[in-house]
Every structure is written in structure tokens, then in C-alpha cells.
Amino acid sequence: MAPSLLARYLARRLALLVTTLWGVVTIVFLLIKAIPGDEAQAAAGVTATPEQVEVVRQRLGLDESVLQQYVNYLGRLLHGDLGTSIFTFQPVLGDLQQLIPYTVELVGLAMVINLTCGVPLGVWAAARHRTRTDNSVRLAAIFCGALPTFWLAMIAQTLIGRKLGLVPISGVSTLGVETPRRTGFLTIDSLLAGDLTAFSDALAHLVLPAAVLAIPFMSFVIRVVRGSMITALEADHVTAARAKGARERTVLLQHGLRNAIAPVSTLVGLQVGWMMGGAVMVETVFSRPGFGSYLTQAVAQQDTFAVIGMVLVVGVIVTFVGLAVDLVQLAADPRVRLLETRRASA
């Protein structure tokens, strides 16, 4: 694709992204307003007098009309202000900035585990289609997909954490292990500080929850990779590649997996969003700070701006992942490029 066409493609996609985010913000704002109950009362606390509730209501701007509150909120959003939590009285953005790295770290490692185990297993099953290997992998995939996360988390804590004592079962770092915060990501900060003890400590706290989070997702990756690989491997160009004398590994990767990238990348893009949701449960069971505890609390407190801010951040991450997926497909498949070129020049 020519650079100018690529620029137009990106511009169009970014416009779409902004529209999507505006939609997300609006829907979440309306949903929060639709929940029965008085936000001012919730913020002021159950013991507050009616006068105190009114003071809080005015200070938070909750005395204005819903439309005015919406306009005010959008205006502040444009200035990068996600509002103030009516519970912590802290700026939502500040709270989230501290918490995002924990969840992103968790979801990131879970995705790495998900792909490094799921993709090879799917490829292996497809290569051994209709054999005992294939059947075992398929059965394992179905089993993984059927495990409830909270149960899996507790079993993993008991077996791997308590019985075997391999890794810690809660928190993000051992008491006394300090890491100077720069990015907020414990693994990255410890590496930046050159502190390998802190790094392995952070990783040890991360690996079990990440694995627990990854396992149900792996089930889908295995099945989608296997299915699309089997279809891809039936193609004539695979026979042609074998007839050229290509190794089976080359055939599987260059003519099988490469052609199966589209459905797999689409699935992975969706999974990033689902994993953010799944992280809530895992973070709670493993007592990790992150989106999970914050969101649970914010919803319970009817903390409008905290919830919207949270959803917005997740929305931004998910839409950018979606864009990344489309770019991967653009790079992987010349037919997609052709389609987009035609659309861009139309």
C-alpha cells in the first residue's frame, strides 16, 4: 500500500476510534444515571445529614440537569480530566495511572502464556489431524475452557502456592522488596533499576495469576488455530509446497499458520478485552491491586466518574488493540491491502 493511502487509512481508522470512544462514554454515563439510588447520598455516606448531602451534591455538580452534567463531563474529558472520584476525592486519572500497570502486566503476561502455549498446541493438533494427539489436544482444550476461573485460581493457590510452595499466592511483591517507580510496571522498573531480585520477585507474584487467567482463553486459541490450520492445510498450495520438497515445518508455518493468521488475530484482539474483564476476578482472588478492586469498589459506591474513567481506559486499550489487529491483517494478507486500497481511493 502506498504511503499516502496508508496515511488515509490510518486517519479514517482514528476517526472511527474517536467515534467509538465517544459512544462508549455516552452509554456508560447513561447507564450510571439509570442505576437507582442517590449518588450524593452514596458519596456523603449513610450517616450524613440531609444538609451535608446537599453540600456534596453541589460540590460534585450533581444538582445540575443530567444533560448539563453530561456536557460538563465531556468538556473536562477533552482536557484530559476524567473527573474526581466521589469516594476517594482523588482525580480518577491519578488513581487509574497507578492501577493500570498492574492490570496491563497481568493481562500482558497472560496473553503471552495464552499464545505461546495455545498457538503451538493448535498447530500440533492440526498437523496430527485425526490422530490420538489431535483428540487429546482437543479434549484438553474443551476441559480448559470449561474451568471456572475462581475455582481454578483457588486450586492453583492451594496446589502450586501452598503445597508445593513454588510461588507466592497473593499481592504483587514481597514485603521489603522495594523498586523505584518510574513506569509503574514492577517488572520493567526492576529491570530498569538493574535489580534482578526484585524482578524475579515481581515475576513470581505475576506468573500464577497470569497462568490462571490465561487457561480458559487458551481453549479458544487452540480450537481456532487448529480449525483454521486444518482448513489452510487442505489447500492445494500446501500440496504444492510439499511437492517442492519443503520441510514439514516450513509447510506448517509458511503455508499453514501464515494463512490462518486472520481468524487467530481477530480472536486475540477480542480476547484482550475479555481478559481485562477476567482480570477483575483473578485480581480479587490473588489480592492484587488493579482494575479489579477499583472497579468493584467504584460500582458498589456508585462512583460515576471512577466507573466511566475505568471503562473509558479499557475502551481505549481495546480499540487500539482492534486497530493493531487490523494492521496485522493488512500486513499479512495482500488481498486485505487491495480491499483497503480500493476503499481509500474511492
Binding site: 498450495h237 500440496t239 510439499r242 511437492a243 494463512n259 495482500p334
Partner: peptide, 24 residues
């Protein structure tokens, strides 16, 4: 494998599917 392609070449029926659509 060393015989395939080098000693015996194979040409298939349908040129629409014998070429991998995502590779040059």
C-alpha cells in the same frame, strides 16, 4: 524430500488454489 521438486516437479490442476494467496 530431496527428490521432490529437484528430481520430480508437480504441477496441479487449479492455478487459483495452487498458489498461496498471501505470499508473493
Amino acid at each position: 524430500r530431496a527428490q521432490r521438486g529437484r528430481r520430480i516437479g508437480l504441477m496441479l490442476q487449479d492455478p487459483m488454489t495452487t498458489l498461496n494467496p498471501v505470499r508473493s
